[in-house]
Simulated scan of single mutants.
Amino acid sequence: MDALTRLPLVTVRGLRVAYDETTVLDGVDLDLHPGEMVALLGASGSGKSTLMRSLTGFAPITGGTARVAGHDVTNLRRGELRQLRAGVGQVFQQFNLIPRLSVLTNVLTGTLHSAGPINLVGGFRSEHRKRAMELLDRVGIAHKAKDPARSLSGGQQQRVAIARALMQQPRVILADEPVASLDPKLADSVLELLRDIATRDGIPVLVSLHVLPLALRHTDRIIGLRHGEMLVSAPTGALDADKLSVLYDDEEAHDDDHRA
Rank of each mutant, 00 (worst) to 15 (best):
R6F: 01
L7Q: 14
P8S: 13
R13L: 05
L15Y: 13
L15C: 13
T23Q: 12
V24Y: 06
V24H: 05
L25G: 13
D31V: 08
D31P: 05
L32D: 03
A43N: 06
G57A: 11
A59R: 01
T65F: 06
H71C: 11
T74M: 00
N75M: 04
L81S: 12
R82K: 07
R85G: 07
R85T: 08
G87Q: 15
Q90P: 00
Q90R: 15
F92E: 08
Q94C: 02
P99A: 05
R100E: 14
N106V: 06
N106C: 09
T109E: 09
G110E: 10
A115F: 09
N119A: 14
V121W: 14
S126H: 11
R131H: 13
M133N: 08
E134G: 14
D137Y: 01
H143I: 00
K146E: 15
P148W: 12
A149K: 07
S151V: 03
I162G: 12
R164F: 10
A165P: 13
Q168P: 11
Q168G: 09
Q169G: 09
I173H: 03
L174S: 06
D176Q: 09
D188Q: 11
S189L: 09
D201T: 03
I203S: 01
P204W: 02
L206M: 14
L209K: 04
H210T: 11
V211D: 14
I223S: 05
G224S: 07
H227M: 04
E229Q: 14
L231Q: 07
L231W: 02
S233G: 06
G237Q: 04
A238P: 00
L239I: 05
A241W: 00
L244M: 08
V246G: 00
V246P: 00
Y248K: 04
E252K: 13
